[in-house]
Simulated scan of single mutants.
Amino acid sequence: MPAPTTPTPAVVDLLGLVALGELLAFDRMAADARLAPDLRRRAALSEMAAAEIGNYRRLADRLAALDVPPDDAMAPYVGPLQAYHDSTEPKDWAEAVTKAYVGDAITDDFLREIAGTLDGPDRQLVLDVLHESRYADFAAAEIRVAIEADPRVANRLSMWARRLVGEALSQAGRVAAADRGPLTALIAQGEQVDVQGLFRRLTAAHTARMAAVGLNN
């Protein structure tokens, strides 16, 4: 574990945000696994949930090593992140895997960009907790199977994916409002993060992912 250091408020806020995201993702995936049509798929999503709680523990341990109670670091973001999950609860298995595919990927893209503004162990920790490609591959394969079984599903899932992104952006605005300043400043550091370029890259990557599984952006 990295040695205790004096954390900057921005690092604490970012680690708190990521930790809460992992904790809520565990809750969501564990519940969504019950929508699986068979035990193989249920086990696959449950494994994804287990990875999320493992990542949460690493982030919570790092915050504790920085003498910051994890609960305190996460508290400002409970409302927006919980609201996102409450407003995007999937109705069936196809929506569940689309949420995992779309929501997790755009979050990972964002965190990968912001991690570049951090130093040493905290940058590596954020990169380490990004989702493994095999989980995205699993979700993508399930979306393709659903569309192959019923091509009409593509339109419904495309609309669902757009809703997921819209809700994510809406709650991101609430996160910025909830933030006490350091995290917003970290994201907007002109010399390290080209904000307009960041959103162009996020949009391009999302569009490519949609097309890869047969969904319309």
Rank of each mutant, 00 (worst) to 15 (best):
I114K: 08
A176C: 04
A139T: 08
R162C: 09
A185S: 13
A105G: 14
G173P: 10
E191Y: 07
A172G: 15
T184H: 00
A136I: 00
L118I: 03
A177D: 03
A161E: 07
V97D: 04
V129H: 05
A146W: 00
M159W: 12
I114N: 09
T107F: 13
D150W: 02
D150K: 03
V153R: 12
A136E: 05
W160S: 11
T88M: 10
L130W: 00
D194E: 07
N155F: 12
P90T: 02
R180W: 06
V175P: 01
L130T: 03
A96G: 05
A146H: 08
D86N: 12
A168V: 14
G166L: 03
L111A: 04
T88Q: 08
T88K: 03
H131V: 07
A94C: 01
D109Q: 13
R156M: 06
V97G: 06
A176Q: 09
V129M: 04
A149D: 00
R174M: 11
A185V: 07
G173D: 09
S87R: 14
G181P: 03
F138V: 04
T98D: 00
R152K: 13
V175Q: 08
A96L: 05
N155H: 14
L164T: 14
R152F: 02
Q189H: 14
S133G: 03
K91I: 01
R134N: 12
Y84F: 14
T107A: 14
S133R: 05
